[in-house]
Amino acid sequence: MSNDQAIKYSLTLDPSISKSATRDHPQPAASLPEAKKTNITPRGSNGDENASIYFIGTATTILEWEGIRILTDPNFLHAGDHVHLGPGVTATRQTNPAIDLHELPRIDAVLLSHYHADHFDQEVEASLRRDLPIISTPHAKECLVDKKGDDKFTDVYDIDFFQNMMLDIKTPGGGEKAPAIKVTGMPGKHVPDGPLSVANDLVGAVPPTNGWMVELGYKVSDDSSFQSGYRIYISGDTLYVNELEEIPKRYAGKNIDLMLIHLGGTTIPSPKMPLLMVTMDAEQGIKLMQLINPDVTIPIHYDDYDAFLSPLEDFKKAVSSAGWDDKVVYLDRADMYKFAVKQ
């Protein structure tokens, strides 16, 4: 694939249309609750932050910019709730989300790395309004549309590795530049290469997963070209695999401002029988930081389920040993990170 393989989808987000994310609560909250703590880059601020990421828990965040909100990997179960992760594999949630599902403000789109219950839980699947735009994998689209019958989601977009689509943002007036978001699928693998991967391809026990490159920027009116003002790489639930090494090649000379990295060292079939690791642990996380070389890294997906066997403290120690404390921001649930998108 080329470095810029756009697909046929076209999506325009209109922040003036106030719709609830769920079917049963027609009036969304006016805004996110006040953050418990607001963070900026460890290297200092010019006071020009115009965008934010709010951490809800697990891999669930809300990206807010230019009046729109994108929800990633919605999981709103509570401590003690269970998720099904594959044949004979379950996990129990250990924490509560920063907010409940019905407390969400207006959400304009969902970015779903893969169709797994700890990223798209059973309550979310039952409750989200069916016309909420969802960007995900071809496998997830099959599950959310083709296999749902009359209760299917009606606005699902599937993106494969290195395919991209544009999300235009409707704003009043106009001008030489119009805000837009470019979403590109990034490689990801839940299962390491080898016989297990071949077996999983046959039985489909662990679903395929995407990472994402989310670029916030502007379209120039005279030629419709896109100018990226901020790049966010979201690793998704992947191990460190060879396919990831294609990312810095394709983005050579293009700065990656922020990385949201899924950690935890998730193991299956259970914490008492950790036969297979399916998400990065601290060691792999450090290796990915070295590969991608983002300005700032924020770890997520690290302690919410009992299947996570690589605690955040391991990653913190590895970061300090590498001398990278000034490159990492740690968010607790209900914390926010603010940053500046360049025009």
Rank of each mutant, 00 (worst) to 15 (best):
H190L: 11
K189E: 08
I268C: 06
H190E: 03
L244K: 03
K317W: 01
P187T: 02
A307G: 13
M277H: 08
S197V: 01
P207A: 05
E245M: 03
I292F: 08
N210K: 05
K272P: 00
P248T: 01
G217P: 10
D257L: 12
V214I: 15
G253D: 08
I268Q: 10
D257P: 09
A318F: 03
I232P: 07
T209D: 06
K272C: 00
I261C: 09
M289F: 04
I256K: 10
A318H: 03
D201F: 08
I247P: 05
H301S: 07
E245S: 07
N293W: 07
S320N: 12
V278S: 04
G229P: 07
S310C: 13
A318L: 08
H190W: 02
P195F: 14
G211I: 05
V198T: 13
G229L: 05
S225Y: 11
I286D: 00
S235C: 10
D304C: 07
L196Y: 11
K219I: 13
E245P: 00
T279S: 15
K249S: 00
T238Y: 02
T184C: 09
S235R: 06
L275T: 06
D237T: 04
L258I: 12
M280T: 02
I298M: 06
D201N: 15
T266D: 09
N255I: 13
G264A: 15
D314L: 12
V241M: 04
V183Q: 09
A199Q: 14
S225D: 14
V183H: 10
I300W: 03
E313N: 14
M186E: 04
D257V: 12
A252M: 04
K189D: 02
G194V: 10
A205R: 09
Q284G: 02
S320Y: 04
A318Q: 09
S225E: 14
D193K: 11
V206Q: 11
Q290R: 15
L216Y: 03
E246I: 00
G236M: 08
G229F: 07
D237F: 04
T238C: 02
P195S: 11
N210A: 07
S224E: 15
G194M: 09
T209M: 05
V198W: 12
P248E: 03
P271I: 10
D295I: 08
K317D: 14
T266N: 13
Y230N: 06
V296E: 00
M273D: 12
P208A: 01
A252Y: 04
G185E: 11
E246G: 00
